[in-house]
């Protein structure tokens, strides 16, 4: 089995996610980009899990855990974004400038 194509896909997705986090100004889209990064890691984990071929299927199991944790994280994240939107009627991360060094 060739693992490279999965790794390239994973790395590309991860990079797109990083790009999104850096460029997007809407908090929801930043959140989506972070999800993209987690999905990229999942592809890697599943690919490595199949490639390593251990009986415990650690890679696949880990991917399930990551999906669950990502869901919990998004739940909290969206709640915080809703709170921000209620307080400021905007979810633009550039407007979060109450505090600066």
């Amino acid at each position: 089995m060739i693992v490279n194509q999965f790794l390239v896909l994973g790395a590309l997705l991860f990079s797109i996610g990083v790009y999104g986090v850096l460029v997007r100004r809407n908090a929801v889209l930043v959140l989506l980009s972070i999800e993209l990064m987690l999905a990229a890691v999942n592809i890697n984990l599943v690919a490595f899990g199949a490639f390593v071929d251990d009986a415990a299927a650690a890679g696949q199991v880990f991917a399930l855990f990551v999906i669950t944790v990502a869901a919990a994280e998004v739940g909290i994240g969206l709640a915080i974004v809703v709170l921000i939107f209620r307080n400021r009627s905007s979810a633009n991360v550039d407007e979060l400038d109450l505090m600066k060094w």
Partner: peptide
């Protein structure tokens, strides 16, 4: 507080993804 929470959350989730990779 909401600003602190969102900044912490976005950067923290980003770091978690990097850690996971």
């Amino acid at each position: 507080a909401d600003e602190a929470a969102l900044k912490y959350f976005l950067l923290g989730a980003f770091a978690s993804a990097v850690f996971l990779y």
